[in-house]
Deep mutational scan, measured.
Amino acid sequence: HHHHHGSGALAALHAEGPLAGLPVTRSDARVLIFNEWEERKKSDPWLRLDMSDKAIFRRYPHLR
Rank of each mutant, 00 (worst) to 15 (best):
L47Q: 07
H4T: 09
W46V: 09
G6W: 14
A55Y: 12
H1C: 15
G6S: 13
H14Q: 03
D44F: 10
F57E: 15
P23E: 00
E16Y: 09
A9V: 11
L19V: 03
D53R: 07
A20N: 07
E38L: 15
L63K: 00
Y60M: 00
L32S: 03
I56Y: 01
V31K: 12
W37S: 02
G6D: 12
E38T: 13
G21N: 05
H4A: 11
W37I: 02
D44K: 07
G6Q: 12
D53S: 06
S52I: 01
H5G: 10
A9F: 13
K42D: 09
L32F: 04
A15Y: 08
A20M: 13
H5S: 11
S27F: 15
H14I: 08
I56R: 00
H62E: 01
S52W: 01
S27I: 11
L49F: 05
H2W: 11
A20I: 11
E16S: 13
A15L: 12
L22H: 03
S52V: 02
I33R: 00
N35A: 13
E38F: 15
W46H: 12
I33C: 03
L32E: 04
S43C: 13
A9G: 14
G8R: 10
L49C: 06
K54Q: 12
L49M: 05
A12P: 03
H5V: 13
R48A: 11
E16I: 08
N35W: 14
R58T: 14
G21V: 03
A9H: 14
R48G: 08
M51K: 02
R64G: 08
H3C: 13
Y60R: 00
D50W: 03
D44H: 07
L63A: 00
G8D: 11
H4G: 10
G6N: 12
P23L: 01
L19M: 07
D28A: 06
H5Y: 13
R30A: 08
P61V: 02
R30S: 04
P23G: 00
M51Y: 07
S43Q: 13
Y60W: 15
G6F: 13
H3K: 09
R48V: 14
A9N: 13
H62G: 08
I33L: 11
L10D: 14
F57A: 10
A55G: 05
D44E: 12
A9D: 12
E39V: 10
A12H: 13
D28W: 02
E39Q: 10
K41A: 10
H14E: 04
K41V: 14
P45K: 08
A15T: 14
M51D: 06
D50M: 03
P23V: 01
G17P: 06
G8Q: 10
P18V: 07
I56G: 00
G8Y: 07
L13F: 05
A29C: 01
H4F: 09
V31I: 15
R64T: 09
I33Q: 02
K54F: 08
E36P: 00
M51T: 08
